[in-house]
């Protein structure tokens, strides 16, 4: 029974590792400038976690195999080195390794969150609401019109609560239900939600950020590959949560300019 148990542990450990080694299920290819560091951090952590996982399971299995039901004559022994050795090993090997990971990881985090967007980044406002995203581009004047929550009306499609009659800045604002951005140009995303908490998750962009009711959150990134990607909500927001999504289209600069013109015409 014990030997069978030991073998089971080893088989499970190996089977668990196979999909990871074979990259059966992995995140889609990165299309951002900051994502490479995150991916690197991920694979380094995977190496360390994987080794720790396999080592711990194997040692456990071996000891179970070797020391179960040895009969009454078996001499009791203690592991040479005792607890002190193990504590030192835990602190030196695991502790230092993990702390090192953490320290290297700071750079990947800082890339996304601790650097300001460049001055010429394209500002786009995204408004999340139950259960859709809307995007707003500032238009020719480069200024966003002020929003008035009391004027939000989905019936008349005044999604952001703009007041173009009295507000010059709002007149040329472009509103779209999907997000288009030019490739290789930094985007400065201004995030706000009109109701509850939501999130903005684009796997390929290596971006995930919650919307916080009552707060304006900002995020910046640069996409490097033309294509169509999904934006999905990852913060439980109500019954339509599973279906809250929009598309992100990364275009060449001319395509983007055309798209913007088209949207403005509508």
């Amino acid at each position: 029974m014990a030997k069978f148990f030991a073998v089971t542990i080893i088989v499970i450990a190996i089977l668990s590792a196979i999909p990871i080694l074979r990259h059966t299920w992995v995140a889609p290819e990165d299309i951002s400038t900051h994502g490479a560091l995150i991916d690197e951090q991920m694979s380094e952590t995977m190496a360390e976690a994987g080794i720790s996982f396999l080592a711990a399971q194997f040692v456990l299995a071996i000891f179970i195999w070797k020391f179960s039901n040895p009969g009454p004559d078996a001499k009791l022994k203690n592991f040479p080195g005792g607890a002190k050795g193990l504590v030192i090993a835990a602190i030196l090997v695991v502790g230092v390794e993990v702390m090192a990971l953490g320290i290297f990881g700071v750079k990947a985090w800082a890339n996304v969150y601790l650097t300001p967007p460049s001055a010429d980044a394209l500002p786009i406002q995204v408004q999340a609401g139950q259960f859709a995203y809307y995007f707003r581009y500032a238009g020719a004047d480069g200024k966003f019109g002020a929003t008035h929550p009391e004027m939000i009306n989905e019936g008349t499609q005044n999604i952001f609560g703009l007041d173009p009659e009295h507000d010059v800045d709002a007149r040329d604002d472009i509103i779209a239900a999907e997000m288009a951005i030019p490739v290789n140009k930094e985007v400065h995303l201004l995030m706000h939600t009109k109701d509850v908490g939501h999130s903005f998750y684009v796997r390929e962009l290596r971006v995930q950020q919650d919307f916080v009711p009552g707060l304006d959150v900002s995020l910046h990134f640069t996409a490097t590959k033309v294509g169509k990607y999904e934006i999905v909500c990852t913060q439980l927001c109500g019954l339509g949560h599973y279906n809250m999504k929009a598309y992100l289209e990364v275009m060449s600069q001319p395509d983007f300019d055309n798209w913007l013109k088209q949207q403005a015409g509508q």
Partner: peptide
Amino acid sequence: FSLYGSRLRI
């Protein structure tokens, strides 16, 4: 590592 050298009952 306490399992090492024990008389483990299953």
